[in-house]
Each structure stands twice: as structure tokens, then as C-alpha cells.
């Protein structure tokens, strides 16, 4: 007799043709992550640095009794500009691990329609392109979509 536990994934906001994105800024550019991949956005938190870890691994954060690994998007994207300000945490849960993507600033949650979507332009730096799943043209700046699964895969395959 097999008894399976089914986890309720909750209602999905699935308006056909549109998707919602949490947006944030890294080095002046606007990025977005599918809201379903984002657990929460948190103000700057004290961070414990990890000697010998890769430079993009900025440290460990205490997120209400859970340990989150903070990933510096500047370093991950190979951007040279470093900000001295404290960074915001975009918390994602990838493969059961809590990962915080460090961003300069947080933008709005944007509802973007499929008509605005375009595949990742070849002109984008490969360091960033490898984590992207597309771009959306909106009235203001272009939103580059980051796929947290791609980030998670990268993190767990790097030695």
C-alpha cells in the first residue's frame, strides 16, 4: 500500500499570455524573476563571509532560522562595478536550498504579456546570458529575465 503525500502548491496566477515578475536592479540594469520562483524580498541583512568560497558567493544569511546562501549578482555576471551600499536580498528556493540573489535595488512586480517577450538577444554578455530566459520590451527600460533554475544549476555544478 503506497501512501503518497501530495503537497499543495497553492493557486497559480495563470492569466494566459501574461506572467508576473519581481524586478530588481543590478549595476543600473533592470532584471526580473518569475514571481513563482521568488519566496520573498528582504532588506539588507548581516552576512557571514565564507573564506575560500568562490567570489560570487558573498556569504551566509540568517533568514528567520534558516541559512540562506547569498550570491552576488555583480560578481556572478562578471560586472566590475562594485557598490559599497548594502544590497537587497531576492530570496529564491532552488532545489530545497535557500539562495539570496543580491541586488542593488528592488523594482515593482510587473505583469508582462507574451507579446512583449523576445528571446535572449545574442548581444548580451555571455556571462549574463547563461542565466537568462528572455527579455521583455516595456515602455521604460528592457527587462532581462533571470531564470533562478539556471542559477541553481550553475551553483550546484561549479567546483
Amino acid at each position: 500500500m503506497s501512501l503518497a503525500l501530495v503537497k499543495d502548491t497553492g493557486p497559480k496566477v495563470d492569466v494566459p499570455g501574461t506572467a508576473q515578475f519581481s524586478t530588481f536592479f543590478v549595476a543600473g540594469r533592470l532584471y526580473g524573476i518569475d514571481v513563482r520562483q521568488v519566496q520573498e524580498v528582504v532588506k539588507p541583512l548581516p552576512m557571514t563571509q565564507i573564506p575560500l568560497a568562490q567570489p560570487y558567493i558573498r556569504g551566509l544569511i540568517n533568514l528567520r532560522g534558516q541559512v540562506a546562501t547569498a550570491i552576488g549578482l555583480h560578481q556572478l555576471f562578471g560586472l566590475t562595478q562594485s557598490t559599497s551600499r548594502e544590497l537587497m536580498n531576492v530570496i529564491c528556493r532552488c532545489d530545497g536550498n535557500l539562495v539570496s540573489l543580491l541586488a542593488d535595488d528592488i523594482g515593482d512586480v510587473m505583469e508582462l504579456s507574451a507579446s512583449q517577450y523576445e528571446p535572449v538577444p545574442a548581444t548580451i554578455d555571455p556571462m549574463i546570458r547563461r542565466f537568462m530566459s528572455g527579455v521583455y520590451k516595456v515602455s521604460g527600460p528592457l527587462v532581462s529575465i533571470i531564470d533562478s533554475d539556471k542559477v541553481a544549476r550553475f551553483l550546484s555544478t561549479q567546483n
Binding site: A53, T69, N97, L155
Partner: peptide
């Protein structure tokens, strides 16, 4: 608390 694999690879924690 377990570490993310990307931290584990340092081998010293």
C-alpha cells in the same frame, strides 16, 4: 545547518 553545495566544495566547512 547544511551548506549549499557551492559552499561545501571548499572542503573546509
Amino acid at each position: 545547518k547544511s551548506l549549499h553545495k557551492c559552499v561545501e566544495v571548499t572542503g573546509v566547512y
